[in-house]
């Protein structure tokens, strides 16, 4: 460990000791600042905006700037608070919104399952490959991960279009063109396609840690390969399955780009409904109510689930 001493820089006066002293001068410790700066930013630009959304969801649309009614109005020296629940009542009574929520959950869940079925063998194969091939294959998974999401959806659209590559290829064999774009099918393909790397990477991380001795032991005890897979590999890769599925399912639920570029007019997804409510109908209060409902129905349960999962992991340590 003698090299460690040599590596340590000689004590010198550094600018931050000056910063530290001047901060201490006004009664702030570095520690407080470390907590305070990100906390303040998050309160102003994360927490307060959500409160604003909740407030505006209780207003109604009006023509003007801003395009919603004030909650607080001053009249004859008294301040009046006007809250409208009409947006929320609409959410429950108009089938459009209920269907959009249910459909988003359904599409996200099915797409996640498909991504798992496609991603698992890929991750398993990569984990069983030796270097340098393993690194090359991993690189091929990571490359789309860093490539623009929007451009990959666009690439897929070009691929599935009526006169796209797939149909041109099928045409060579005299097969009539398939209608793939503007269907729910295209939305499923789109979600699986764009989020597949998010499924593969966590699966790979757990599968590569799998001890081959366990598989050999199982085989030595007479288990068939599928039996070994079901009772050894699959349970041990559960953390990867859960992590990968969450990484696909969560962004897929609120997805806007994929249903609007690949889906048809009938592809109802809640992210798209919120977008249209805001941009096409300029109904800010209604879209705020859609957002709050989405938060309560989708985001909060997911956060609670993750917390519970973290707690289980902590306890196992």
């Amino acid at each position: 460990m003698s090299t460690l001493d040599a590596d340590l820089p000689p004590p010198r006066q550094r600018p931050w000791s000056l910063i530290e002293r001047s901060l201490a001068g006004i009664g702030l410790s570095g520690r407080a600042l470390v907590i305070f700066a990100p906390a303040l930013w998050l309160i102003v630009f994360f927490l307060v905006p959500l409160a604003v959304v909740f407030g505006i969801s209780l207003a109604v649309k009006q023509f003007g700037r801003p395009p919603y009614t004030d909650l607080l109005t001053a009249e004859d020296g008294t301040v009046q608070l006007t809250l409208h629940l009409s947006n929320y009542i609409r959410l429950f009574t108009d089938a459009l919104y209920v269907n959009a929520y249910l459909n988003s959950i359904k599409i996200a869940a099915i797409a996640t399952a498909i991504a798992l079925l496609i991603g698992y063998p890929m991750a398993y194969f990569i984990a069983r490959t030796q270097d340098p091939w393993r690194n090359i294959l991993l690189m091929l998974v990571i490359l789309p991960f860093w490539t623009s999401f929007l451009l990959r959806v666009y690439a897929l659209a070009g691929f599935m279009r009526g006169n796209g590559v797939i149909n041109n290829f099928l045409g060579l064999f005299g097969i009539p063109p398939l209608v793939m774009m503007q269907t729910d099918f295209a939305v499923y393909v789109g979600i699986v396609y764009t989020y597949l790397p998010f499924m593969i990477l966590p699966l790979y991380t757990t599968l590569v840690k799998l001890d081959p001795a366990l598989l050999e032991a199982s085989a030595d005890l007479g288990a068939k390969p599928w039996r070994t897979f079901l009772s050894v590999t699959l349970p041990l890769s559960m953390p990867g399955i859960i992590a990968g599925s969450m990484l696909v399912f969560i962004p897929a639920i609120g997805e806007f780009v994929i249903p609007s570029l690949l889906g048809g007019p009938g592809t109802l997804m809640i992210g798209r409904v919120l977008w249209d409510e805001f941009f096409a109908n300029t109904n800010w209060p209604r879209s705020a109510a859609v957002a709050i409902a989405m938060l309560v129905v989708v985001v909060v349960p997911i956060m609670l689930m993750q917390r519970a999962q973290d707690a289980v992991v902590e306890r196992r340590k």
């Binding site: 505006i56 609120g254 800010w284 985001v299």
Partner: peptide
């Protein structure tokens, strides 16, 4: 609270983040 606030954007749909910040900026 800090841990929750910093990790929430990871599960927050983009449409909500975008809408909430816009409404904040307007307000």
């Amino acid at each position: 609270a800090l841990a929750g606030m910093v990790s929430a954007p990871l599960v927050m749909p983009d449409v909500i983040t975008g809408l909430s910040l816009l409404l904040l900026f307007v307000a």
